[in-house]
């Protein structure tokens, strides 16, 4: 369970990104089907069945594993699409599937007992009892931990559960309970847990107002960026709101998570795998971020110091980075 090797798990939103991730040194890539069964259901993104089979074959030929993400929650009466996704992942030869919904976990356990199951971050399993429940009932082999835990919390959970754990190493910082953004549901009328996006592109509008950019989600103005101010994603948790006569980032500032400088601590905590977020990002992003983490992990294995964080600042949301809850804990 505790390995001295930190597995690098990388995003692939398209076949081209999968190739880029493999070339940049990914140990494992994760991807989803072209529908609402995964939490990155953006237009033009993801894999159809032929692309999934070709992607798995290509990755395996290059010594890389493939995880298929089926981590949204089936809508009542429409479970068939989600069951089909699990079946298709098995047919494509995926090394594991990443699930969140209890019903779907049950289906996968019964239908494909030999297919490895990972618990998605969308399940928000952040304590030992919860993780052990999923292991006991659905034989999950790995848990992806929510981004609200400090390194000490992570180490303690690993000790208590003796589970393989995957933690986020690069991506966004979200203050919501993972995958359950009620603000987004309120603003768009769409559920992130069902539709697979927290800021549906169909509801996002940018207005160029004399060099000021106004970002809106539905009818709500989330932010206004002045000239030369870095822009950010139009997500409700990163909005700049007015409260008590003061305009500020009430929940979280536009800032990216980067754990490249705390890899030794994560390794010491017993973490199995590092997850790079960004299936909705381009292949240029995948090449750059995966390449940087590959080098940092190789340096770590060789016992040399890592110096990678500065390289990725421009890739981070708002052009700023944080080690998130790993160091400061959660509010």
């Amino acid at each position: 369970m505790r390995s001295s090797y930190l597995e690098l798990v990388c995003p692939a939103g398209t076949p081209a990104a999968l190739h880029a991730a493999v070339a940049a040194g990914a140990d494992t890539v994760y991807c989803g089907f072209r529908d609402c069964t995964n939490a990155r259901n953006y237009p033009g993104l993801n894999f159809d069945m032929d692309e999934m089979i070709a992607g798995v074959t290509y990755a395996h030929e290059h010594g890389c594993k493939v995880l298929v993400t089926i981590n949204t929650f089936p809508r009542a009466g429409q479970e068939k699409s989600w069951h089909q996704a699990v079946d298709n992942a098995a047919i494509a030869g995926a090394d594991a599937i990443i699930l969140a919904d209890i019903g779907l976990l049950d289906y996968a356990t019964r239908s494909h007992p030999g297919l490895r199951r990972h618990l998605s971050v969308q399940a928000s399993a952040a304590n030992a009892l919860s993780i052990l429940f999923y292991r006991e009932h659905f034989d999950i082999k790995r848990v992806v931990l929510p981004r609200v835990l400090s390194i000490e919390d992570v180490a303690s959970l690993i000790q208590q559960t003796e589970m393989e754990t995957e933690v986020f190493a690069f991506g966004s910082v979200g203050p919501m309970s993972e995958g359950r953004c009620f603000l987004s549901s309120y603003m768009t009328g769409l559920s992130p847990t069902h539709e697979g996006v927290c800021a549906p592109a169909s509801h996002v509008v940018y207005q160029d107002d004399n060099h000021c950019i106004k970002s809106c989600l539905g009818s709500v103005t989330l932010n206004k960026f002045s000239k030369d101010e870095p822009a950010a994603y139009p997500t409700p948790c990163k909005g700049r709101y007015e409260a008590n006569g003061r305009t500020s980032y009430l929940f979280e500032e536009p800032i990216g998570l980067n754990a490249v400088d705390i890899l030794p601590q994560l390794k010491a905590a017993g973490v199995t795998a590092l997850k790079i977020e960004g299936r909705q990002r381009s292949r240029a992003y995948v090449s750059k971020v995966v390449g940087t983490f590959r080098k940092a992990l190789d340096d770590l294995a060789a016992g040399t110091q890592t110096h990678g964080s500065g390289d990725l600042k421009t890739m981070a949301e708002g052009g700023r980075e944080t080690s998130g809850a790993y160091k400061k804990g959660w509010r």
């Binding site: 081209a16 953006y42 237009p43 993104l45 169909s202 940018y206 950019i213 139009p234 421009t314 890739m315």
Partner: peptide
């Protein structure tokens, strides 16, 4: 996204259309 953060590119109008185009070109 990096170009968007740094304001090298500016997107206006129907974002879903631009996202779909970007993802399709990136393939």
């Amino acid at each position: 996204d990096m170009m968007f953060f740094s304001r090298e590119i500016i997107i206006t109008g129907d974002t879903a259309v631009v996202v779909a185009l970007r993802n399709t070109l990136d393939r």
